[in-house]
Design a protein around this nucleic acid. Sequence first.
DNA 1: CATAACAAACAATCTTGCCGGTTTTTGCTG
DNA 2: CAGCAAAAACCGGCAAGATTGTTTGTTATG
Lengths: 234, 234
Amino acid sequence: MGVLGFRGTDSVDEISIRALALLEPEGLDAEGQGWQQRKSVQTRIAILDAAIDCLQTHGYGRTTTQLIAEIAGISRGAMLHHYATKQDLIASVIDYTVYKRWEIFLDGIRALKDPARIQKMAGIEISWNSLQTPEYAAYLELAIAARTDPNLAKIFLPRARRLDQTALAETIRAFPEWAHDLEGYALAMDYATATLSGLLINRDTWPESSQREVRAFLGKTIAMLRHGDLNRAA
Amino acid sequence: MGVLGFRGTDSVDEISIRALALLEPEGLDAEGQGWQQRKSVQTRIAILDAAIDCLQTHGYGRTTTQLIAEIAGISRGAMLHHYATKQDLIASVIDYTVYKRWEIFLDGIRALKDPARIQKMAGIEISWNSLQTPEYAAYLELAIAARTDPNLAKIFLPRARRLDQTALAETIRAFPEWAHDLEGYALAMDYATATLSGLLINRDTWPESSQREVRAFLGKTIAMLRHGDLNRAA
DNA sequence: CATAACAAACAATCTTGCCGGTTTTTGCTG
DNA sequence: CAGCAAAAACCGGCAAGATTGTTTGTTATG
């Protein structure tokens, strides 16, 4: 049976672990390697975390290789040894942030018992949590910058599209109640992601009370979508 | 009667014109002035339009004073005569883009006949149109950059908050059917703006069909919100 | 003549990619 | 198993290019 086939007897744990495996970035597993290899992976992760920190607090435009190296605690020369160019580094950041985002999402799903998982607000809360992480903030910065930076778009768009598709196909396995309706699940995910992303952008401009109301209303909307109370076709 | 009072007999035309007046930027009206003043305003608008173009196509990080001057068709020295520093220029761009955004929105509302205006998709379509303009793209770039750029935030946030509040209080006048429910109107506006902004950010990543579905679903959601089918309180 | 609009050049600061040099780890060989 | 050369990790400095604000100069208006 292929990895895309369904096996109704699998637990949510097994399903989500397998989903994550498909999103895992390459070159970051130090299992069964020598000391140099392990050290290399460790340094690389420190660099990626530093880059995420930098993107989150200073934005893409003000994220410099100098700053990343400082935060990572190594010299700029050492960093350029692992990532020869800024593009190479950013490419790895994209894969890494997407993986982390869905890891947090699936962790949240897994932590719920089945009855709680299908309650109307649970999915939104967990989505909201996975969107409030430094990793997603960094991803959002890149997504935004990619719209106006051709060089960045060249490495961002192919990855983002592929990872988006993979994440959609894999995370639905954690929602048996959506299994029969992939299109509905896709719409719900896109809808929630769009609204919450928009909320994230305006978080400093809008009052907290407005943001809370929008989130609460979104939860009810998604619940109705799942129950079929709002048929999608116009 | 104060400018904030309601006058049920006013036409939508009169109402929206008065709403715009409160949002109009200062120093851009050349009425009854001498030749130098008129020339100055004309050049300043050329600079603002160039800045909007630049922000839209290159993003805030890559928007340089050099590029703006080039697009505006004047020398960099001449531009710095009108806007001594980049901050001064950006501050004017904020006011200008917000004004333009609501001008387009109210123009769209005004163009509808009353029966059409209260149809469920009309509001979303017009909102969507006002969010697809170069002016709003530029505003969004600034809103995003302001989250990670303290210097920009200092000039952006106060303006954005004030203009947001003014726009909300004024544009509701164009919707008699919302007049009794300011909170509901605010929620609908925030909700639609958040979702459509999120859509705008991911426009290059997501397939067009997904974006269309999200928009259609948003329209139905807002319609239900107005009809009270979805009570807001949890 | 004073002021506004406009132009061009300049210094100071940043950022990137590259290059030479040092230390540590690995693997081969006698 | 000792020794040694290759490779990997790491560091500091440099030149080229870009961006901002200032300054000096020119033309047109009041």
